[in-house]
Amino acid sequence: MSLTQEKCLKMYTDMWRIRLFEEEANRQTNLGNVVGTLHMYCGEEAVAVGVCANLRDDDYVLGTHRSHGHCIAKGAESDKMMAELFGKATGTCKGKGGSMHVADFSLNMLGANGIVGAGIGPTTGTALASKIRGTDQVSVCFFGDGAAARGTFHEAIAMGSLWQLPVVYVCENNGYQQWVPRKNVAVVDSVADMAGSYSIPGVSVNGQDAIEVYEVIAEAVARARSGGGPSLIEARTYRFYGHSLGDEQQYRTEEEVEERKLNADPINILRDFMTERNWLSSADDDQVQQRAGDEITRAAKFAEESPWPEMGEVGTDVLFDAKEVA
C-alpha cells in the first residue's frame, strides 16, 4: 500500500483519537468512573496506526494489556470501548472484560490480553486458520518487549516459521518491563535480533515515527499475504505514562520523560512530516483535534449514561450452551 496524504491523515487522526481516549480514561479514573487499572498507550500511538493502516478489515489483530490503541486503530468504536472501561452493559464486552480485555470480533480484533506474551500463540493460530482455509488474511500480534522473555514467544514463532504462516509479530519495545528497564533483565538489546533463531526477517524501527513503522510493516504484510511467511518487527517506542495507574515511576527520571515528550512525540513527528509536504494545514490540524475531542467527549457521556449490566449477566457467556450440543 502506497503512502498517500489520505493515509497519513487517517493515521494522524487515529493518533489523536487514541491520545484523547487515553487521557479521558485517565480523567475518568480520577473521577472514580473507570475502576480497576489502566495501561495507557500515550507515546506509542505511531506503532498501532502504522501497523493497522496496512491491514484490511478481515485481517486479524491480537493485542496486549495495553491495547486501547490497537483497538481504535483497527476501527473499534470509542463509545463502546469507554463503556467497557466503565463496566457498563453497552461495553464492547458487556462489561465482562474491562480495559485489559477490550475486543471487537466484528473487526477481527480478537482482543487485548492480560497475560504477557499470551497472544503470540493464538495469533499464530489465526494465521494457521488462514493457511488451512487458503485465504490471504494476515494476522498481526502486538506484544511488549517483556513478552520476548516468555516461552510462548519461542514456541509460537518457531511454528509460525516452520509452516510459513501469514503473520507479522510486532514487538512494542518501550524499554520497560513493567517497572524494570529492559537492560536490567535482558541480554539481547533488540528483540528484532532474535528473529535469526527462527530464520525469519527481523527489523528494528523507530516506533515514534508512524511513517517508518508504516513502511516496514507494509513490506512484512505484503510478504505474509503472498505466502512468504512471518516477520518479526521491533518498534522502539516510549510510554509517556507509567506501567499502569499509580505507578510511582522510581525507575526513571522526570527529565527523561519530559525529554521524550518534547523530542519523540509521535503526533508531532507525523505532523511535521505532513506539514513539510503541505498535507496538513493548521486549520486541518485544528479540525482533526476538534473532531477527535468531540468524539471522545461523546464516548465518555455515552459510557456515563449507559446502564449497568443486569444481575443475570453474571452467569451468561460461560459456555455457549452445552446442553444444546448434539
Partner: peptide, 28 residues
C-alpha cells in the same frame, strides 16, 4: 492432507495456536 500438523515439542505453543485457530472459526 493439509489438515494434520505434526508439531515441535511445544505444548504451550500447540494449545495457544489451537485457541487462535478456534477463534478464527476452525475446530482443532
Amino acid at each position: 492432507p493439509g489438515r494434520i500438523f505434526e508439531t515441535p515439542i511445544a505444548e504451550a505453543g500447540i494449545v495457544g495456536l489451537g485457541v487462535g485457530a478456534a477463534m478464527a472459526g476452525m475446530n482443532p
